[in-house]
């Protein structure tokens, strides 16, 4: 039983780290600020959630995992708000959204 939960914990933590890494790569690779906000706002959220689920498996069913669950809930609620606030401020400031090049022009 111990080994199963440990294995699950390792799988989830690895998945979470993978998604956080992809989120960071996305911040570098995407062409403009708004699509970067997509990368940081969504992929990172998923990464952090998976990471926390892995830690919950690791700590077992006790008070610590409940606290971790609280962290997960708050991250899931605040991260889209942060992405939205950044994007809105950028738009009001006048940052041009990147557009795909039209073929004929």
């Amino acid at each position: 039983m111990e080994s199963i939960t440990n294995a699950l914990a390792i799988i989830f933590v690895l998945l979470g780290s993978f998604f956080m890494l992809v989120g960071s790569i996305g911040v570098v690779r995407f062409p403009d600020f708004y699509s970067r906000a997509h990368a940081s706002g969504k992929v990172d959220t998923l990464g952090i959630l998976l990471f926390i689920i892995g830690l919950m498996f690791f700590s077992g069913l006790n008070l610590i995992s409940l606290k971790l669950l609280l962290i997960a809930v708050f991250v899931a609620m605040t991260s889209p708000v942060a992405a939205h606030a950044l994007a809105r401020r950028a738009l009001v400031f006048g940052l041009k959204p990147w557009k795909k090049k039209q073929e004929e022009k």
């Binding site: 992809v22 989120g23 062409p31 969504k42 992929v43 959220t45 899931a76 795909k100």
Partner: peptide, 25 residues
């Protein structure tokens, strides 16, 4: 919660796609 997982995987796929087929609007 299901949508969070789907959107994370979707944007991760777009990120890792070599040609990055996005058309923002």
């Amino acid at each position: 919660a299901l949508q969070i997982v789907k959107s994370g995987i979707f944007v991760a796929y777009l990120t890792l796609h070599p040609k990055m087929p996005i058309n923002p609007m």
